[in-house]
Design a protein around this nucleic acid. Structure first.
Lengths: 344, 344
DNA sequence: ATGAAAGCGCTAACAT
DNA sequence: ATGTTAGCGCTTTCAT
């Protein structure tokens, strides 16, 4: 980057502070304004953001730390966060932690070294303290989904309620034997998401006075294969359920693949509702009834909250914004008459 | 960011320059090294990258400009680019241009303002000159896929050859009536990808001396709906094809949805090969035979090439690296005996 | 091996 | 409205 504010000053015979003023929207005499604009254009001058930040101690940089960018649920969120922030004049630095504490810690340090004005972070599944240096440096951090951390704002979806609604819907359609593929395997560690979703399932049963059957709970780790295996285990049960609630997208993919392989008809032989409503939901035959997490709202709210904090507004800190997850009813649930079911 | 190199100097009673030297891996007396390490740890000191770059004119920042992050094909590439670059000590700033010239130009300027050492860019479908300022500022740029631009390096996949292989495979399985859903609609503008893929189709037919039938070419714009509509048009033909080659993922999704809706059996009634091999390929019943673009290699090569340029090595500039796209054979193509077909 | 000092490009007082 | 100047945090000569 060769051309600096000095060059523009020289070209126009004005002081650098005048150029600076102009570049920051200050008042400049009409004649000079033209002069400057012309020179900026001709030289291709762009102010050096690093130098600017050095002085003003604002970088207009925001750090975004995720598991990875290759995730059906989070990549649209990342995209929207980036675009929204750009609209507000902020730029985004991304890092992927891949659920590794070492990488997470490193990512946070990266961000700090680059003087980010704030960070949006998808927490690890385990809750180690990789945010220590962010706390020390008093950089605002908004965490996404997952767990509530005592010292940080959070924006996520209300998984417990979303799951509750899904299971309630099954009950309303006459189902009583409802299994669940949960995401509460040891492997998922502290992943709050899995526990919240199971909680919704349990509460719905409780509220409708349906006794909980341990054998109807298959705990997986949110992976395709754990959905496949969990579904297999459930289907082998002597007393098969008439419906199943699946706790996330990949497990749904696994479960549906198994059902297809076994030639089991949805919803004739088994009704199904999934948590997460992504691409496959409307591609699958039949289209899947699913709980959709409010991705767009999560992106919007997390940006808004971060913006607020970056402006120094710390009212209600820490905030935990839980946005409603909505049930989309399609064709994977069969209505069964209560009598028919009771008769079995 | 409160704590600076000064604080460390004061704490240790050493000169600023000594701390700087240590931070950059220079030699320091054992006793002092301990002193510094201890102070850095205690104060949570992290060097200010902006200040560093101001002096050294290297920011260790790389700009990544894409259409968006919410794309099944590009988001894994973005992820890998980011992770690879991080491993090399570079950080990534992302912007999304959404195929808008205005946004693209702004993104490029953003990057320049942030003093990026280099950029990786997915070009727009039209080829306006939004890279002018990058050229002026002599910042290395590697473009992804799409079109070759005279002054910039490019890394992509060899779409023509991939498509050729797909169609050749259909021919080898005995098909002669082969339709194509191309991505060559006016709406796609200069999108080279669509043209390349159609080229592969035409060449395969030519090499096997199968006459080209214009009515077998449905041109779409790479969208779900254009796949859906294109497939519909093809299926309404009096002389239906026995196989179809579809030029991208979303169009495949659209086409398969139509086939499902109409109850048309794959591959019994229609054989299908798609360009792009993403999630749905192995979820669909039957699993789809598809051409997979070498996403991982594209990410790797583009980073390697950019690294090379950032080190000042401009040998073979501009380079156009076209990586092979590979055919994955699954269950969506039926082998038909030549005789049977000829007899029809 | 360590220290002193200049200066990277810019903004923010302050003076004019 | 414009110019002068100090200094942000760091690296880099150049001394010592």
């Amino acid at each position: 980057m060769a051309v600096t504010i000095k060059d523009v000053a020289r070209e126009t015979n004005l002081a650098i502070s005048t150029i600076s003023k102009y570049m920051n929207g200050g008042n400049v005499r009409g004649k000079n304004r033209k002069l400057i604009e012309e020179a900026v254009q001709r030289l291709g001058y762009r102010p050096n953001n690093a130098a600017r930040g050095l002085r003003s101690s604002r970088s207009f940089l925001v750090g975004l730390i995720l598991d990875g960018l290759d995730n059906q649920f989070f990549s649209p969120i990342a995209s929207q966060i980036t675009e929204r922030l750009n609209e507000q004049g902020y730029h985004v630095i991304v890092c992927c932690h891949r659920d590794s504490i070492k990488k997470a810690r490193k990512s946070v340090d990266f961000m700090l070294e680059n003087q980010v004005d704030g960070m949006i972070l998808l927490p690890l599944s385990s809750d180690e303290d990789y945010l220590e240096s962010a706390r020390i440096n008093r950089v605002p951090v908004v965490t996404l989904d997952r767990l509530e951390m005592p010292d940080f704002d959070m924006v996520g979806s209300n998984a417990a309620v979303g799951s509750y609604n899904a299971v309630e819907y099954l009950i309303q359609q006459g189902h009583r034997k409802i299994a669940v593929l949960s995401g509460t395997d040891k492997k998922t560690g502290g992943l709050k998401a899995g526990q919240e979703r199971l909680k919704g399932y349990k509460r719905a049963l409780e509220d409708y006075m349906i006794p909980l059957k341990e054998e109807y709970i298959a705990s997986g780790d949110f992976s395709f294969s754990s959905g496949y295996e969990g579904m297999k285990r459930i289907w082998q049960l002597k007393d098969r359920p008439t419906a199943i609630f699946i706790s996330n997208y990949n497990m749904t993919l696994g479960a549906v693949t198994l059902l297809h392989n076994l030639g089991i008809a949805i919803p004739e032989e088994l009704s199904l509702v999934s948590f997460d409503d992504l691409e496959f939901s409307e591609l699958c035959q039949p289209n899947l009834t699913a709980v959709r997490q409010p991705a767009e709202e999560i992106a919007k709210e997390s940006v808004d909250l971060l913006l607020k904090r970056m402006q120094g507004d710390y009212t209600n800190f820490p905030e935990y914004r839980k946005l409603p997850a909505k049930l989309f009813i399609r064709d994977s649930v069969r209505a069964i008459s209560r009598n028919a079911e009771t008769a079995t």
